[in-house]
Design a binder for these strands. Structure first.
Ligand SMILES: [Mn+2]
Ligand SMILES: [Mn+2]
Ligand SMILES: [Zn+2]
Ligand SMILES: [Zn+2]
Lengths: 140, 140
DNA sequence: TTAATTTTGATAATCATTATGAAAAAAATA
DNA sequence: TATTTTTTTCATAATGATTATCAAAATTAA
């Protein structure tokens, strides 16, 4: 059941990294949210729950979580990086619509687009490692 | 024939902005390149041709060029903004594949993806204002 | 324990971009 | 043309998110 935490601990071992309270607190925080949080927000949430973590540790740990695909880095054009958890039920492999008026983030997934992307890459002799697909929109 | 420059001058007038030598030099530089240049590169090109322009003026002018769609702002994940000229023959409305090994930027356009995007936005009650669609790839 | 290694966290550094403000240029007015 | 007003430019300072540094704390190994 705590399969995510187990996996994280295994990943840390693989890199000869220790499983510290701070690293685990950050992972667990990211398991609890389906929002697209920026670093400052994550720090605040941790602090509120009594898990004070330094900025440096947070940034370092987010890199690990990205590397092992627990979270995804997201840049929606406001100059700050956000993180999108892959750890919430059924939340994976989606793209984003960002409302330029409200700032709302709407998630979407389209299988046909996915396939077309793969075809395009393949046709050029490439394989896709990472995709960024964002629609900046306004209400009709 | 110098229809682009004329249009730029008209756009400036519309905003009560003057058509200065610096602004024109920047526009003309962007008419000459099909590369995806960052600010520092644009400054250097201008300097080499004897059109020395200050950083502040460059940044301000690029915002104007973006606003009037002479160029497009591009962020390919290296922390610096790049500009993609819309002023070179037939160069418009395309997306990018970025090779994570070589840094090469390959442009692509797919009509089906375009249509699917519009459908997705429409279905959610939005219209698309701007798109970011980038495939980060590696050679097969 | 003791010693060696890793991690943390306070703080400083970085660096692309933005703000500032005095001087230069351009436009408007006389 | 000379004078005044407005705009622009440019050198430089400030900003702010992120990254680097390094001494102290925690962890692990011996
Ligand atoms: Mn990083
Ligand atoms: Mn700007
Ligand atoms: Zn998301
Ligand atoms: Zn391009």
């Amino acid at each position: 059941m705590q399969t995510v935490i187990k996996k994280f601990k295994k990943n840390l071992q693989e890199e000869n990294l220790k499983s510290t309270p701070q690293r685990l607190a950050i992972l667990e925080e990211m398991m609890k949210t389906d929002e697209h949080l920026e670093c400052e927000e994550i720090l605040l949430k941790l602090k509120e729950k009594g898990n004070k973590v330094s900025r440096a540790t947070l940034y370092r740990t987010m890199d690990i979580l990205v590397k092992y695909k627990f979270v995804r880095k997201l840049e929606i054009g406001d100059g700050r990086v956000r993180y999108d958890s892959n750890l919430v039920h059924g939340k994976r492999n989606h793209d984003h619509m960002i409302c330029l008026d409200s700032g709302d983030i709407i998630e979407f997934y389209n299988d046909k687009i996915e396939k077309l992307q793969n075809e395009i890459a393949e046709k050029n002799g490439y394989k896709i490692i990472r995709r960024v697909h964002q629609l900046f929109v306004k209400k009709v």
